[in-house]
Amino acid sequence: MKKAKIITLTLTFSTIFMLTIAYMMPSTDNYNPENPFWNGLKNLKNITNATQITSTTQLKQIIDPKHTAILILGPEKPFTPQETQTIKEILEKGATILVADDFGQANTLLKQLQIQCKFTQHLLVDPVFYYKNRKLPKIFHIKNTTWTKNVEELTLNYATTLNITSTEIEILANSSEYSYIDINMNDQWDQGEPKGSQPILAQTRIGKGNLILLSDPSIFINSMINKSDNTQLLKNIAKGKTVYLDLSHYKTTPHTKLKTAIQTTLNFIYVPEAKYTLVAATTIITLYATRKTKEKTEKEEVDEIEEVLKKHPNWNRKILEKLKEWRESFGTNRTTQNT
């Protein structure tokens, strides 16, 4: 029995300890706003004070779309027709939505929105204008618009390009004349690979809102956001708006899922109903347990007297209880004297 108790306690404490460590450790997922490492979006979150959206239905809660900016960065899951409809509705009401993607699933959204543009999902390479190597191309052919005010240069990181087939979509930035699309990923330009200036940033109006397309979400990760004028682009999009960051289209690691579950539990516990009930229950359980132990001791004492009375039913109970008390106090004093 004692062994079982020890094992149970050890397991409980180990589990709590493990959960604490899992909760304290920051996430390392790509595009996670709590991730402070090179591939996270912690800096973006701090700059924009973005609210995280874990389901597209939360967009229906937005009451002032004109002063709202929604960031959809590198979605890994496709968009359902219902999600697209929600996005379309809020766009038409005046929201600004930035869809930044390279090799993800944003094309499913663009297709359903019937936008005459798609992400080519082939790597953009610039052998002349780059940061450190040609897969981190620099962009400086930037049109002067509201979104690109004071943005003179952008640095991309494993970017793709936009394939635009409509004149209604305004191109805001292009790669340099030396860039090309490396379809076979051999770091060289080969015959048949598109060469020359490629669009990487564009925008179009949908209803009263603006849809901005950027062919590289990585410019906003912690290690890239301070390169060139990447931050300025973000600030221009977020200026005067409440920013929402879509997290509902990422595939999360088990660690992140566990953290989220712990956070949800903690959030629930912090609610007054749960909080006070828990405190009260803990107090009562503790008191109850203490009382049970006391009763058990008393019962043991009562049992002793009962045993005697069974043998000698004519003896007086009260006298027996008195004798027991004296015996105990005499026994305690003796112990005290001996020490």
């Binding site: 790509n30 090179w38 591939n39 590198g74 390279d102 090799f103 993800g104 999902q121 790597l123 052998p127 002349v128 204008f129 780059y130 940061y131 450190k132 190597n133 040609r134 897969k135 981190l136 640095t155 990181n157 494993y158 030396y178 990923m185 979400p217 990585s218 990760i221 290690s223 890239m224 390169k227």
Partner: peptide, 26 residues
């Protein structure tokens, strides 16, 4: 596998430098 071939990004601080600076092309 697709994600491995097409990584979303690399750490710019540890990214390898080009062997030949691009100034020659320009």
């Amino acid at each position: 596998i697709y994600a491995y071939i097409y990584p979303p990004h690399i750490n710019p601080e540890t990214a390898p430098e080009e062997e030949t600076p691009s100034i020659s092309i320009l």
